[in-house]
Design a protein around this nucleic acid. Structure first.
Lengths: 195, 195, 195, 195
DNA sequence: GATGAATGAGCTTTCATTCAT
DNA sequence: GATGAATGAAAGCTCATTCAT
């Protein structure tokens, strides 16, 4: 309806797709709804994305990258590895509420894990997160913020794992208010020097 | 084809449903496949379950209960709370491979969390697990196996959370062989007395 | 369930069929419901009637005959043709309420009129009614109760037609209380001698 | 197949629906047949009508309105109430042959009278007809065409009732050629002044 | 660049009907 | 003589996807 360039339109469509995919899930979501939600007709969707699945994959990739970028931006703000980790945690606690849809989408994707394309996106996402955190931890160890006896690869996976299970609790509505705080404080306690 | 009593057939159907729902996912799974897989025709499925969704809910409930029961059985074998916890971990590591389908089903269910029925089943499952572990931890504390300064409610959620994220890694094929072992050893280390 | 002879069972089944066919209609009625309603299993229905359609035809025939018989019985009670006619009218006004289901069934059958078997039953029913009334009218003319210038064949069809449209009004719930009375009084007025 | 605008297609579909619903009956009619008959595929039907039942209701309403309109048009042609009545009768005798399907549809609808939507349409149809005729009769009385002692409300219902039972006879193939003529001539005789 | 019209293919669900026991 | 188990066949409806304009 409203005149837009191809790029703009595509962005609007992706936004709409995120919403619809998250509200329902990949299978239940209808291309028609994505179109309607973006104030366009269905064929327009197909002008920009070759198929529903393709649109889904693009959306998924984008979400994953956005999440990573969000963390990277947050990290860039501080110089202290410990502070960086704390900022990431804060950012996550924010995400869980503000970007609920994105979160849900990432989580739901596991249901489509049998699709090799989906699997790769998810796996890549996990591995990138692992690497990001691992680097941060290594950096922190080198600079004396964290104990020298920790295994940064393991602790990275554990850290990301915390995000995962908190998300799961959140979506299932069994997450209590202070659990997340308690969790990450316990986590940090395990990697910083005993006072 | 092969004549069976209602009870038998229902069991076979549920088994088939678990397989098909797990292999695809609730939406992608076709009732026809569930039927074929159970060597019957579609109407038989509807004689035993009022609808696809209902079958799904029954399957989900059953799986959840089965998982709980498995843990309870395991616990019953030993008297020592610490050993019990270790047995649960062992059982889980077994489950992850032997009952891959059940695991996947439980995990995928989060994609259908918008359905109130599904949400309740999942939430109930989580809360039961929390309770089971919390009781175990409390018992262990009382008997001097675990440190007196731990918060059993928190540690229970953390413990279950470990299962969740390990499952997630497993399904996404980013789970490395020794991670699970390392994880739970780290966990136990955090709750038993320092030597 | 309850032991019965073939004949008894068949009667119970027909009763049940009348109810179910009338409540829904031939197409919407389910054999399963007819069976349940008669406290038997479906195969029993097929032991007594070769098919749903056949059961329907038997039911229809029976209803038609019953209606005719009801009128004949009523007629037999009085010797005076005019009184006979009045008794038929009374009987009909009773039927409309007490045998609502039968009435409805007869009426609904027109929807299946494309079926030659159904058509024959209905047509036969109409023609018998015509004959019954025509004879009555003729008799009344001969005995001086009715005017000699009436056409008994025509008046018979008109009389039966009154039943039909009143039924139609009744089923559509546009029948007002005194219409039927007024109608038949007007009818009689047209055939008896002017006073 | 042939490209059409929405409006055009809808008209074609309704025409097709009338045919198919009339030939079979609401239950027996298949949406697929309605589609095929309109030279389109099934989904097109569902693009224009939300469900089979809805299509049926629209068709029924339309038919009823069309019948009413036909009578109204006929009436508009003449100024004399008596002539108007005679024209309506003529129109009806024409309808019975030319618009057989519409007639059949209206009649069959009583089989679905348990559906509140259907009931309302039918009842409304009857009541409108009553009103139309009643007004005509009243007008005729005022202008001295009909006897002053007739009850126009009653005579209107009787008149419409004649249509109903004639339709019934026609569909059951027991209608003889001259019955309708005789019937309405008898009817008119009852309401015009004795000569 | 955009849209309304159209469809192929498929899915859930229902139901009359028949065996094996 | 009766029943539980089983099915073939179909019907209503949906949806991703594509043309013609």
């Amino acid at each position: 309806m409203a005149r837009m360039t191809g790029e703009e339109r595509k962005k609007v469509l992706i936004k709409s797709a995120i919403k619809v995919f998250a509200e329902e899930n990949y299978r239940a979501a209808k291309v028609a709804d994505i179109a309607t939600n973006a104030d366009v007709t269905e064929p327009i969707v197909y002008k920009h994305f070759s198929s529903k699945k393709n649109l889904y994959l693009e959306v998924l990739t984008l979400i994953m990258e956005k999440t990573m970028k969000r963390f990277q931006n947050v990290i860039a703000k501080s110089m202290n590895p410990l502070e960086k980790l704390e900022l990431i945690i804060k950012e996550y606690n924010l995400m869980i509420h503000v970007f609920r849809q994105e979160l849900k989408l990432e989580f739901q994707a596991v249901s489509e894990i049998d699709d090799p394309d989906v699997k790769e996106i998810i796996a890549t996402g996990y591995l990138s997160s692992f690497k990001l955190v691992e680097n941060l931890l290594q950096e922190g160890m080198d600079q004396g913020y964290f104990r020298e006896d920790i295994d940064p690869a393991f602790q990275a996976k554990l850290f990301v794992g915390h995000f995962i299970h908190v998300s799961s609790y959140y979506l299932s509505e069994v997450l209590e208010d202070d659990y997340s705080e308690q969790l990450f404080s316990y986590y940090l306690n395990g990697i910083v020097h005993d006072s």
